[in-house]
């Protein structure tokens, strides 16, 4: 029997201590909105949810969700979460991380979790800055970003998180905006339904150290013109008047943004989103679309079925247990060559 939960059931007794106006509040609201839905759809009891984090502003998250939670050390959430999931595959494991935690200090664990396709739901808060240490550049800060540790502008190229996920053979990638609680919740429910590592990047605003970093496409009045929400099986159309779309520029083998109704282009010419395409080619082009040349892609960009690490571990053990060489430790100790003195 499914237990019905409300958002309230996932609120802890801890006072939320993010800065007023921080994008994290909206993400917390989206998670608390998504969890009752996930519980209902997948018939999960509340005690199955486990939230794991590393270090950073985002990583305080587990304290605010009334589930099992583990606040780890910097960069290591993916490894801790991997241990939890393999130890108890029945748990619904959620990893909360940021652009520094996941892509700088924890980059190695992040790519390997994605490569293994272990069934984790990773929510990556991307504010393109280090907040908790008070304003240094991150691996996703744009080239030239002026911060306390880059007073003359950064001299390094940023990561695109989606590109790393696809490069690491990721099976699920979604992108959303902190202020779009509905879309975030939708992505998170999709993430929970996906078997394997799912990464949802939330473009999040740091009101203190990087205010407005996503503003040029996230602001409500221009958002529809400058972002595109992808939905599986639907044409890639966007714009306030739903008059723009994406096509492949075959000559240059890249995407192009076109206006429907111009140059004889009709809705039928527009690409249809297929998140289940195992070939990551189009997905890679979508995650790399940047404003102002393109709309920023949001929604579930990739969700491909493949075997998962935790299932593979479990299956190997089950198979070995059906035909054991040893079925207990006494047998183990006496296996191989022994001799008797009597």
């Amino acid at each position: 029997m499914t237990t019905k939960y409300a958002s309230q059931d996932f609120k802890s007794d801890q006072e939320v201590k993010w800065c007023p106006g921080c994008g994290d509040y909206a993400i917390l609201a989206a998670v608390q909105k998504a969890l009752p839905e996930v519980a209902e759809i997948l018939e999960y009891k509340k005690e199955r949810f486990t939230f794991i984090s590393g270090i950073g502003c985002s990583s305080r998250f587990p304290y605010y969700v009334n589930t099992y939670g583990f606040h780890g050390i910097h960069g290591r959430a993916a490894a801790i979460a991997t241990g939890i999931k393999v130890a108890n595959p029945a748990l619904s494991v959620w990893q909360i991380t940021g652009d520094g935690d996941a892509l700088a200090i924890g980059g190695n664990h992040f790519i390997h979790a994605v490569r293994r396709n272990i069934d984790l739901n990773i929510i990556l808060f991307d504010n393109q800055i280090y907040g908790l240490t008070k304003g240094q550049y991150s691996p996703t800060s744009r080239l030239g970003t002026v911060t306390k540790t880059s007073p003359f502008g950064t001299v390094e190229h940023p990561f695109v998180p989606g590109e790393i996920v696809l490069g690491a053979r990721g099976t699920f990638f979604a992108r959303t905006l902190d202020i779009d609680i509905k879309l975030t919740a939708e992505c998170l429910v999709a993430s929970a339904k996906h078997d394997g590592t799912s990464v949802t990047t939330v473009l999040q605003n740091c009101v203190i150290f990087n205010d407005g970093t996503h503003k040029e496409y996230a602001d409500k009045d221009i958002r529809e013109e400058r972002t595109i929400v992808l939905r599986h099986g639907e044409p890639m159309i966007y714009g306030k008047n739903r008059d723009k779309g994406l096509m492949i520029d075959y000559e240059n083998l890249r995407l192009k943004s076109v206006k429907i109704g111009e140059n004889g282009i009709t809705e039928k010419d527009i690409l249809v989103h297929n998140m289940e395409n195992p070939n990551p080619g189009i997905h890679m082009m979508l995650v790399n679309m940047k404003f102002p040349d393109f709309p920023v892609a949001l929604g579930v960009i990739r969700a491909v079925k493949d075997s998962t690490y935790d299932d593979n571990v479990r299956e190997q053990i089950e198979r070995s247990r059906q035909h054991p060489v040893c079925s207990n430790v006494d047998e183990l100790l006496r296996s191989g060559s022994t001799w008797t003195i009597d």
Partner: peptide, 11 residues
């Protein structure tokens, strides 16, 4: 870290 996670999960 995987071991710590596994310990948290009861292994």
């Amino acid at each position: 870290c995987t071991a710590i996670g596994a310990a948290f999960a009861g292994n």
